[in-house]
C-alpha cells in the first residue's frame, strides 16, 4: 500500500536568470529576506561584511566615463550538481537531495564553515550572532521557515518550503504539478520576470526550454560545478563594434 505516498525524487529543480532583463532593482533581495526569515542586516553587520543575503545583486563596472557600463547579476546558491560544499562537510549537513537541491540541514550543522570556504560563489553565510528581531517585528516571520540560530551556516534553499507546500497541495488535490505553479520568492518578485523557476526533468517546462537558449551560460563554468542556475547573457548591441571593455 504505497499508492498515496508522495512521489519524491522525480524532479530536478532549476532556475534561469536572464541578465538582459535584470535592472538591479533589489526586489528579489528583499522578497527573499522576507520569505526566509533572514535576520536584519544591521549597519554593524554590513560594515563587518557579515551581512546575510541569500540572493544578492552584484554590480560590475565596465569601461570608463563617458562610456561606463554597470552590469548586474543576481547571485544565489547555484545548487551545483557537483557541489564543492558537499564533500567538505564533516557532518553531512550539506548534501544533495534527489530533487536536485543542495540542502543545508540546520540541525546537523556544527559550524565548521568548511563549506563556505569551498563555495566559489560565496553564497553560504555563517550566523555569527543569534538572529534578533524586536518583539513586534516577529509577527511578520514566516512560520514555514526555521529560524537559524547562532553558529550555523545558511544559504538559498530554492524556497523549499514553497516547493513542499505546493507539491503537497497538488498531491492532496490529486493532480500533477503544473509548470510555473511553484514560484520562489525571488522569481515571484522579479520586476521583469527575469527569474524563472521550474523542473529541468520536465522537457516542456519553461526552464528546460530556456536552458538551451543560445545565451545560456553558467557561472564560473571552469570550476566544473554544473550549477542548476542557468544565466542568460546580457546583450549589448554595441559589443561587436568596440573592443572588450573589461578592466
Amino acid at each position: 500500500m504505497t499508492t498515496d505516498i508522495e512521489k519524491f525524487g522525480t524532479r530536478n529543480w532549476g532556475m534561469i536568470a536572464d541578465l538582459d532583463k535584470c535592472t538591479g532593482c533589489q526586489a528579489c533581495v528583499i522578497a527573499c529576506q522576507a520569505e526566509n526569515n533572514i535576520p536584519i542586516n544591521t549597519q554593524d553587520r554590513v560594515e563587518r561584511a557579515r551581512s546575510i543575503s541569500w540572493i544578492r545583486v552584484e554590480r560590475y563596472w565596465e569601461g570608463d566615463f563617458p562610456d561606463t557600463k554597470a552590469r548586474f547579476i543576481p547571485v544565489m546558491c547555484q545548487h551545483c550538481e557537483n557541489a564543492p560544499c558537499e564533500p567538505v562537510c564533516p557532518v553531512y549537513a550539506s548534501y544533495h537531495n534527489s530533487e536536485g537541491l543542495n540542502v543545508q540541514v540546520y540541525n546537523r550543522c556544527v559550524g565548521t564553515r568548511y563549506c563556505a570556504n569551498a563555495c566559489p560563489y560565496i553564497v553560504r553565510f555563517f550566523n555569527y550572532w543569534d538572529p534578533v528581531w524586536p518583539e513586534s517585528l516577529r509577527n511578520h516571520l514566516n512560520p514555514d521557515v526555521t529560524i537559524r540560530s547562532r553558529g550555523i551556516m545558511e544559504k538559498c534553499s530554492f524556497c523549499i518550503q514553497r516547493i513542499n507546500r505546493t507539491s503537497r497541495e497538488a498531491k492532496s488535490e490529486g493532480r500533477e504539478l503544473e509548470d510555473g505553479e511553484i514560484q520562489t520568492a525571488c522569481s515571484a518578485a522579479c520586476g521583469t520576470h527575469g527569474i524563472v523557476f521550474g523542473d529541468f526533468n520536465d522537457p516542456n517546462s519553461r526552464v528546460s526550454k530556456l536552458r538551451n537558449h543560445k545565451r545560456a551560460f553558467t557561472l564560473l563554468e571552469q570550476f566544473g560545478t554544473d550549477p542548476n542556475v542557468i544565466y542568460l547573457a546580457k546583450v549589448d548591441p554595441n559589443r561587436n563594434n568596440s573592443e572588450e571593455g573589461h578592466h
Binding site: 560590475y60 548586474f72 551560460f217 547573457a233 546580457k234 546583450v235 549589448d236 559589443r239 561587436n240
Partner: peptide, 20 residues
C-alpha cells in the same frame, strides 16, 4: 578570472559560447 566572468555579455547575434 577571465573577462566576461561573471557577467557574460554577448553581441546581438552572438551565442554565449561564441562570446566566451
Amino acid at each position: 578570472v577571465e573577462p566576461g566572468v561573471p557577467v557574460l555579455v554577448v553581441g546581438p547575434n552572438e551565442t554565449a559560447k561564441e562570446a566566451q
